[in-house]
Nucleic acid binder design. Structure first.
Length: 473
RNA sequence: GGCGGCAUAGCCAAGUGGUAAGGCGACGGAUUGCAAAUCCGUUAUUCCCCGGUUCGAUCCCGGGUGCCGCCUCCA
């Protein structure tokens, strides 16, 4: 079985083959840092992280790059020359650089909380101006771009494949329907590589003018090339990035390098909230802080966002969050029970019992992940394991095999199950022992009091015929 | 207006041209000093609607409806 991924470029699932054996070059479209990232953003970043983790599970080295866009996003295409960061800065009466530093820091904290593995590098657009200018100059030289005053545009008509990714064609693009076409453009679909505006705060002098800043798409082309090379294996982003952003990246990079850019384009469907689009007006653009404030661990959010396959719409509600929490705790419980069964507690008599079942579950999990990261199917495979261990159908060595798989493969990808052996401090150990004594004396008032006290400390006790078991709430 | 995705039980979510995984929740029972956990049982006869192809469709085709995305620098 090989890893099969859906490629937006071809609209088919394809076997994944990296350019270089054993190495995968992957670029993830990251955040524009002018505000707090919301849970919808994280669906895309958790998808990218899952992809990276699964590739690593299959033994390859992943060179992963995620950009931080800290400059250059215009609010609109009119003549305002204002970008989101500058606009936010104006609102808050702060320096735009300070704004982008602030939100970058919070973004890094958020992804850490979600258990997202750090990328190899998080390049900032503002630190790659020379690389962008180099590409722009190259495109001008090759005749793919033209200068209009102090601006530079990419000439879409020179790139016949423009529209291949999104299914749009230049002639069908309803250009000018909602925005005014700038007169200096040769074609309405031409897009900016470099813009100029004296009022801009974040700007760089070039031979095009004193007050220039990069167009939106060029930063990703330049940073992908700088950190991964002319050609890459995978490029990811949200579904909204397909057009125009990724379409434009392809045009720029391929015209500049003369080679195909990314072999696989993978896009995450949007997260819906309360059955529809999340909106500031409805107040449901939740951040991690909102989730934590409601009493959920960030890892529960991670699991919640992995409930659905990344290419199908996924809905978020607090009730669904509750459910995710329960399911995740059941996976924690699976891990704890496997650890006990490994030592013979709650295990089948024959050590080898259930080995075949464990192998089947592993195979099913692997097959599910290999099928375009079908995480819900993969989680279902783990549930089979849980049923087996609850029914004490796994022997010690089968449980050890299952635990090995859970820790070193399944949770390497899911990244949110508690799989570590946990220990109690002596004081709690003593309290548990004291409760057992009280129960023996049939002093249930005392035993229940101790149980409540421990519960308040997050320790849940279960009395089984074979003794007491504890777990963290 | 153009292009694309999705629609499966109370909820979440897989899946297949041959009659529907799994989970959460709920209900009934067992177990328990009481709980919790666990076990047993119950929980989809239009798989959005209407046509068509087929011996047979939830799955294929056509037409609707709904939600979502892009065509505006929102993942």
């Amino acid at each position: 079985m090989t890893f099969v991924v859906y490629n937006t470029l071809t609209r088919h699932k394809e076997p994944f083959r990296p350019l270089e054996s054993g190495v995968v070059r992957m670029y993830n479209c990251g955040p524009t840092v002018y505000g707090r990232a919301h849970i919808g953003n994280f669906r895309a970043y958790i998808f990218a992280d899952t992809l990276r983790r699964w590739l690593e599970c299959s033994g390859v080295t992943v060179k992963q790059v995620m950009n931080i866009t800290d400059v250059g996003h215009l609010l609109d295409d009119a003549d305002e020359g204002e970008d989101k960061i500058e606009s936010q800065a104006k609102k808050e009466n702060r320096d735009p650089w300070e704004i982008s530093r602030h939100w970058t820091r919070l973004f890094m904290e958020d992804i850490h909380k979600l258990g997202i593995e750090p990328a190899m590098v998080y390049p900032k657009a503002s630190e790659h101006i020379p690389e962008m200018v180099e590409m722009i100059e190259g495109l001008l030289q090759k005749g793919y771009a033209y200068q209009a005053g102090e601006d530079v545009y990419f000439e879409v008509a020179r790139f016949p494949r423009y529209g291949r990714l999104s299914g749009n064609t230049v002639s069908e693009l309803d250009a000018g329907a909602r925005i005014e076409v700038r007169e200096e453009k040769r074609h309405p679909a031409d897009f900016a590589l470099w813009k100029s505006d004296a009022r801009h705060i974040m700007k760089w002098p070039t031979r095009f003018g004193e007050h220039g800043f990069p167009g939106w798409h060029i930063e990703c082309s330049a940073m992908a090339r700088k950190h991964l090379g002319d050609r890459i294996d995978i490029h990811t982003g949200g579904e909204d990035n397909v057009f125009p952003h990724h379409e434009c990246e392809i045009a720029q990079t391929e015209c500049f390098t003369g080679a195909p850019f990314a072999n696989y384009w993978m896009h995450t469907k949007f997260l819906q909230v309360d059955g529809g689009k999340m909106s500031k007006r409805l107040g449901n653009c939740y951040s991690i802080d909102d989730v934590v404030a409601k009493g959920y661990e960030p890892r529960a959010l991670r699991f919640c966002l992995l409930r659905g396959q990344y290419r199908t719409p996924l809905n978020f509600t607090w009730a669904i969050m509750d459910e995710s929490k329960s399911v995740l705790e059941n996976l924690d419980d699976l891990a704890a029970r496997l650890r006990r069964a490994m030592t013979g507690h709650g295990a089948a008599a024959s050590s080898e019992a259930g080995l075949e079942l464990v192998e089947e579950c592993q195979a099913e999990f692997t097959e599910a992940m290999d099928d375009d990261l079908n995480t819900p199917r993969a989680v279902a495979a783990l549930m089979q394991l849980r049923t087996a261990v609850l029914e004490e159908r796994l022997g010690a060595s089968a449980a050890a095999a299952a635990n090995q798989f859970l820790v070193h493969t399944a949770n390497k990808v899911l990244g949110c199950v508690r799989v570590e052996e946990e220990s109690l401090d002596a004081e709690i150990e003593r309290a548990i022992a004291a409760r057992q004594d009280a129960r023996k004396r049939k002093d249930f008032q005392a035993s229940d009091r101790i149980r409540d006290e421990l519960l308040a400390k997050g320790i849940v006790l279960e009395d089984t015929p074979k003794g007491v078991i504890w777990k963290r709430k």
